[in-house]
Design a protein around this nucleic acid. Sequence first.
RNA 1: GCUGGCGUGGCUCAGUGGUAGAGCAGUCGAUUCGUAAUCGACAGGUCGAGGGUUCAAAUCCCUCCGCCAGCUCCA
Length: 570
Amino acid sequence: MMERIEALRHTAAHVMAQAVMRLWPDAKLAIGPAIKDGFYYDFDLEHRLTSEDLSAIEGEMRKIVKEELPLIREELSKAEAVKLFTRMNQPYKLELLAELPEQVSVYRQGEFVDLCQGPHVDSTAQVKHFKLQTVAGAYWRGDSSRPMLQRIYGTAFSSREDLEAHLRLLEEAAKRDHRKLGRELDLFSIQDEGPGFPFFHPKGMVIRNALEDFWRAEHIKRGYHEVKTPIMLHEDLWHRSGHWDNYRENMYFSEIDEQRFAIKPMNCPGGMLLYKRKLHSYRDLPLRVGELGLVHRHELSGALHGLMRVRCFTQDDAHIFMLPSQVQAEIEGVIEFIDAVYSDVFGFRYHVELSTKPANAIGDDAMWERATQALKDALAAKGLPYVINEGDGAFYGPKIDFHLEDSIGRTWQCGTIQLDFAMPERFDLVYIDEDGQRKRPAMLHRVIFGSIERFIGILTEHYAGAFPLWLAPVQVMVIPVSDGQNQYALEVEQSLRHQGLRVESDMRSESVGKKIRAAQLQKVPYMVIVGEREAETGMISVRHRQRGDLGGTTLEPFCQQLLQEIAERR
RNA sequence: GCUGGCGUGGCUCAGUGGUAGAGCAGUCGAUUCGUAAUCGACAGGUCGAGGGUUCAAAUCCCUCCGCCAGCUCCA
């Protein structure tokens, strides 16, 4: 079933390529695979494709569908295929062919033929429900030193209903985009004067502080200490840590008293200095040291994306210094910690990747092998399925990455656990073992949220802005029915505030309906409506943003119920 | 950084060569209202920045900045 839809999308890609070739016969074909929910095809083409062109291509595709062309597979020798694609003047296909085995396959449909291993559906007639979406640039073979091609993305389904449902889903997803909600709910902004450097507004700060309070409480429970290291440190430190050799491109530098300083892109070198401030006993280990550390990284301008991808962010970092014998238990502990936060508190679905030694790495292969194996062992012990991300580790060690999905299905790395034998070596970290000998500790770098900024972005989309009570910037909006109840509303507001709730009153001379609507749009969890009836009897009328009118009650039980809801983080 | 698109009041958008418009939000006034929009008035923009073409530029051209989609890269 899944394979059939993939074949259908792959065929849709061929139909699109055929349509493009009919409209622009000089187009050079690159590749055109099926992807999640659709397909794309890359073209090298003098003409710059516009959205009007997309309609024209769609029109041509519909003709091809009507022609009911059968897809015919042919097996060719490589030599024959080279001849074929040379005759067709398709250099990218020839480049692909050079790496293929002696026997290759092509698929024909009418006058169109493409190098392809398949499978496909039987006829272009089956590609009925599709839509071309966008055209964007993409490097040939994903290599930024190669030519940039034009990529057309499309979506295709086996039924009209599925296609329409998917298009509706995309529309709904756009509504929960954290950048849109961040503006509407007045959580944060990014100004032209600081691309990638977000401003947090009062309401965004409430969420941020609630997350940090939660974070601190959970870390204390798990035996962490908290520290704060400086934003800026001498360049020499970054030479010692390996960042200058391996991470310089992403770093900001400045000068103080004719000395070069770097703004930290990571917290670990500062953490190393803190560890080294005194001698440690084996009895001190594992030493778990957390830091909400603000780091700055120069990201490519085109990569910036709301709070998800910024140039300065706060990592909820921690460095765990361990005896070699403690490594596996500590990794497992962090895996459990992350799962407890993601699954139990926020109800996220996530997937895990294991990233191995990158091209620019410090430390020898044996060390990398040992560290990678330790991460694998921990994952196996926790029974966590994972995919391997070859060559994507940090330059100082392999890592386990936890990925969360945004509203349109893009995934973002949040949590990560990195095992590092290199940094302790470089900084000559030691502890005194029970035999009195100086020995080398192992070290773990890890984050739970990843970056607070990105995590807030993910949370905003996850909840579509309707944050649970414990995170909601305004928890209760008091709404007097008319000006006559403003005084009573104020008393209610004060009383709830004294209980520690975040309350506001809407005392504008507007209709109740309008004030309720405003609170609903701000996704305030509870509205307390007070009119003449309530003012006289000392009661309140409660409305919930999702459950609607909950009827009358008094302050005391209402307040207790909310405090309970907050305590349980529902 | 690259390819393409876009940039008009706080927000959403209209205006494509002839001295800047709407709705929402805001302010003021009237209304005093019972669970998602009461009525009226007022105020608010050197049209992203700089340069050029023109009698005349939001509109055409150039450069830069920023944003959006994707690629590359990553928390």
